Simulated assay, not measured.
Amino acid sequence: MAEVKVVGSWASPYSASVEIALKLKGIEYEFIQEDLSNKSPLLLKYNPVHKKVPVLLHNGNPIPESLVILEYIDEVFPGTPILPKDPYQRAMARFWAKFFDDKFLPAVKKAVFTKGEEEKEKGKDEVCELLKILDNELKNKKFLGGETIGLADLAGNFITLWLGVFEEVIGVELGVTEEKFPHLCRWKEDFLNCGVIKNTFPPRDKLVAFNIKRFNPAAATASN
């Protein structure tokens, strides 16, 4: 059997997406936990450009960047497809995956982490507009990939758990409600209720505690 390892972090949505893809394919792997506050020589060796997790090691060959890894997993390993076979549908899956990386995550960072109130409000408005686009796209779909979880859903897994955690930890309300975004919220619930997701995602309370220490240490100290 091919040797597969994932250098990642239990608290990273990007690492989680790679683990989910491997589980969907039925591939056994070893998970190597990385301390992102003290990056290991292994991580710096295998991802010297970005110095980020995750990194997939397949027979000793490193593949960095989560979207690249997801496509590699789909090409190399048989089993449940992550990308559709139809060329147009494949292109659209890649489009939505890039939507999360290029549009949604930068807007969330502006809304959540910007200190200036004016810029923060601009970020919140951007997030709201992008959520409307996603909600409309999911109007007649179970998942972004169709009837099954695919590349775009894995790229957007941040919304299903991490977004709410950051709202709580930072104290920013982005208004992701069923009333405003019914299709998006239904997608979120369908995603979280999948067995492979439940077996991969960290407990919410553990993720909250981790990010309080990371982004709001004063609150973490006060609660001890």
Results as ranks from 00 to 15, higher is better:
K115N: 13
D74F: 02
P54F: 11
L70P: 09
L144Q: 06
N140Y: 14
F100S: 07
H58C: 02
F201G: 08
K39L: 02
K206I: 08
L83Q: 01
K213F: 04
C185Q: 10
L138H: 08
V53H: 07
L67P: 08
R204G: 05
D190T: 11
L184H: 01
M1N: 10
W96R: 06
I82K: 07
C194Q: 14
E173S: 15
I133H: 14
F215M: 01
K51Y: 10
K110C: 12
Q33I: 09
N211M: 10
Y72E: 07
A155C: 08
H183A: 02
I73W: 06
K142N: 11
N59V: 03
L207C: 01
H183F: 09
I20A: 10
V55R: 07
W10V: 15
N47I: 00
L105A: 06
E30T: 09
S17Q: 15
G79E: 07
L70T: 05
V7Q: 09
I82E: 01
E179R: 04
V55D: 06
P41H: 09
E65N: 08
L36Y: 00
H183E: 04
W187N: 07
R90K: 13
G60Q: 12
S66M: 11
P81E: 08
P41E: 05
K51C: 13
T177L: 04
F181R: 10
L184K: 01
A93L: 12
R204L: 05
R204K: 14
P106W: 08
N140V: 15
A218V: 14
A111C: 10
I27W: 11
G26M: 06
G145T: 03
W162R: 07
K120D: 07
G175W: 08
T80V: 13
L22C: 00
L36H: 08
V49R: 03
F181S: 12
L192F: 03
R186S: 11
T221D: 05
A209N: 11
K122G: 15
L151T: 00
E3V: 10
E65G: 01
K213N: 11
F181Y: 15
N136C: 14
N199Y: 07
I73D: 12
A16N: 13
K188C: 10
E168A: 12
A2K: 13
N224T: 03
P217W: 07
D190V: 04
G116W: 02
F210K: 05
G164V: 06
L67H: 14
T177R: 05
L83M: 07
